[in-house]
């Protein structure tokens, strides 16, 4: 039920690839933890107000050390450590099988494929089932490349080339958009991502090269 309410063509909670899925898992874990901590603080506040006698035996030192140090520090160390390890796994380390160039300008995206091949139709074509690196830059102002169902985002900055690795489980149509405010056409900077079965992708590239 809840998950159905979160689905959508641009929903980060409706992942369609392993990388976006691990980000969504991280979110659900953090949401659970946050809900527990919130409940704890609110219950303590409520008791402190309505039934202060119940808590009157807790000494000042116990409040400060217990609530301020013992409670948050282990949680934060574990969470940050886990997030850094996950971040390491998501980094575009080494070479992915395929590297696609993405260029943003006001207010559209264009994509270039190895060897100058490929269809220049504003759609990002990629093979499904394998990681793909997108090297993102900008021709004018700063934009941001974001395909929520396949992974996180990376900024397109003039003078810089930033690489993000994406992966789609299944062939299909996904949607991406510009996430960094870039002027009057920022509203309409969506783009289509088409993931193909690997053999279809190879055929598409070969066809476009001719």
């Amino acid at each position: 039920m809840l998950l159905a309410g979160c689905s959508g063509e641009l929903s980060a909670l409706d992942p369609a690839g392993p990388r976006a899925a691990s980000l969504a898992t991280l979110w659900w874990i953090m949401l659970g933890g946050a809900a527990l901590l919130f409940a704890l603080v609110m219950v303590l506040f409520g008791i402190a107000y309505l039934r202060p006698g119940w808590l009157s035996r807790i000494t000042p030192m116990q409040w400060i050390v217990g609530g301020g140090l013992v409670l948050p520090i282990p949680i934060l160390v574990l969470l940050t450590g886990a997030a850094l390890v996950l971040g390491e796994q998501l980094l575009p380390k080494g070479d992915a099988p395929l590297r696609i160039e993405g260029q943003a300008r006001q207010w559209a995206w264009s994509f270039g494929y190895p060897g100058g091949a490929g269809p220049y139709d504003g759609t990002l074509h990629m093979p499904a089932g394998e990681p793909v690196d997108i090297a993102v830059t900008s021709a004018d102002v700063i934009h941001s490349f974001w395909v929520p169902r396949l992974g996180g985002k990376i900024d397109a900055i003039p003078g810089h080339v930033n690489v993000i690795r994406l992966e789609a489980d299944e062939p299909g149509i996904y949607w991406g958009q510009c996430a960094e405010y870039c002027g009057q056409g920022h509203d309409g900077m969506q783009f289509r991502v088409e993931a193909h079965a690997p053999e279809d992708f190879a055929a598409l590239m070969a066809g476009a090269a001719q």
Binding site: V41, Y49, G68, L69, L71, L76
Partner: peptide, 24 residues
């Protein structure tokens, strides 16, 4: 950024503790 939550938590619990050990 994660660590800055610790001094915040100290203050939050000091305030709750103040209420709990007083006569609110």
């Amino acid at each position: 950024s994660a660590l800055v939550a610790v001094p915040t938590a100290i203050q939050i619990f000091a305030w709750i503790g103040t209420l709990a050990s007083g006569r609110p």
